[in-house]
Amino acid sequence: MNLKGLSDVKTSALPPVHTWTPPFCGDMDLIIKANGDWIHEGGKIKRPAMVNMFSRILWREEDEYFLVTPVEKVRIQVEDAPFLVTGWQWIETDKGKAIEFSTHTNDVLVLGIDCDLWMAMFEDEERPYISMRYGMKALLGRNVFYGIADCIGQVKTPEGMGMGLISAGKSYLLMKDE
C-alpha cells in the first residue's frame, strides 16, 4: 500500500478520507479479526502504531472495508467490527453525566454525543456495539461491557421499556422488558 500523502496529515487528527477518491487497486491480505486483532499475510500486526495508522485510513462502503490514501484504495476483510472498545469512564458534559469510551486504536467517543450504543447478533451471540466514524462500529470488549453492566437501570426509549443506560441525557435500551 502506498502511504504517500499521509505525511502531511497531523498524527492526532483524522485524515480527510471522506474527501479522497483514489482508484481501487485490489485486495490486500489484511483481516481484522472479531477479537480486534489485525492480521497481515497470516501474522498479527504487533506494532500498535501501525494498527493505529491503518485505522485512521479505514473506510467503509456498503458492507466492504478499504484502506484509503490520496492515491489508492485497497479492500481488506473485517470479521465483525473493525474497532474494539477497551476502556470506559464516567465524565461530566454540558448534557450531564456521560460514558466516555476508548478504543484499542486510541479513539475516544462519548456515548450520546459522539456515538450510540446497541445490541446486535454476531454469529450466534448477542454483542454490544457503538457507532464510529463513516458508518463503522466498535465492539465493546467483555471487560467494558461487564463494567458498564453495574450502571444499567430501567430506561424508556422509542423501542420500549427495559434495562439500559443513560448517557449525556440519552437513553439506550439493552434488554427489552417482556
Rank of each mutant, 00 (worst) to 15 (best):
L30P: 14
I31R: 04
I31H: 03
I32L: 12
K33Q: 04
K33Y: 01
K33D: 01
A34L: 09
N35A: 05
N35Q: 11
N35R: 13
N35E: 10
N35C: 09
G36R: 07
G36S: 10
G36D: 04
G36N: 05
D37A: 10
W38Q: 03
W38F: 14
W38N: 03
W38P: 03
W38G: 03
W38K: 04
I39K: 12
I39W: 09
I39M: 11
I39V: 15
H40S: 10
H40L: 14
H40N: 06
H40Q: 10
H40D: 05
H40T: 04
E41T: 11
E41R: 14
E41W: 09
E41V: 08
E41D: 15
G42P: 11
G42A: 07
G42I: 06
G42Q: 11
G43Y: 15
K44T: 11
K44H: 02
K44A: 06
K44M: 08
I45R: 08
R47M: 13
R47T: 13
R47V: 13
R47I: 11
A49P: 04
A49F: 09
A49Y: 05
M50L: 11
M50P: 00
M50G: 00
M50C: 06
V51Q: 04
M53T: 02
M53L: 13
M53P: 00
M53N: 00
M53W: 00
S55W: 00
S55R: 05
S55G: 01
S55H: 01
R56A: 12
I57D: 01
I57E: 04
L58W: 10
L58G: 09
W59H: 08
W59S: 07
R60S: 13
R60Q: 15
E61L: 09
E61F: 07
E62R: 15
E62F: 14
D63I: 06
D63M: 06
E64M: 14
E64P: 07
E64R: 15
E64L: 14
Y65K: 05
Y65T: 04
F66L: 09
F66W: 14
L67E: 03
L67R: 08
L67H: 08
V68M: 10
V68I: 13
T69I: 12
T69D: 12
T69C: 14
P70D: 11
V71C: 11
V71M: 10
E72M: 12
K73G: 03
V74G: 04
R75I: 01
R75V: 00
I76K: 09
Q77S: 09
Q77K: 15
Q77D: 05
V78Y: 02
V78H: 02
V78P: 02
E79T: 10
E79I: 07
D80C: 03
D80V: 03
A81P: 00
A81E: 05
P82F: 05
P82Y: 05
P82L: 08
P82H: 07
F83V: 01
F83D: 01
L84S: 02
L84W: 00
L84K: 02
L84E: 08
V85K: 02
V85F: 07
V85R: 03
T86K: 06
T86E: 02
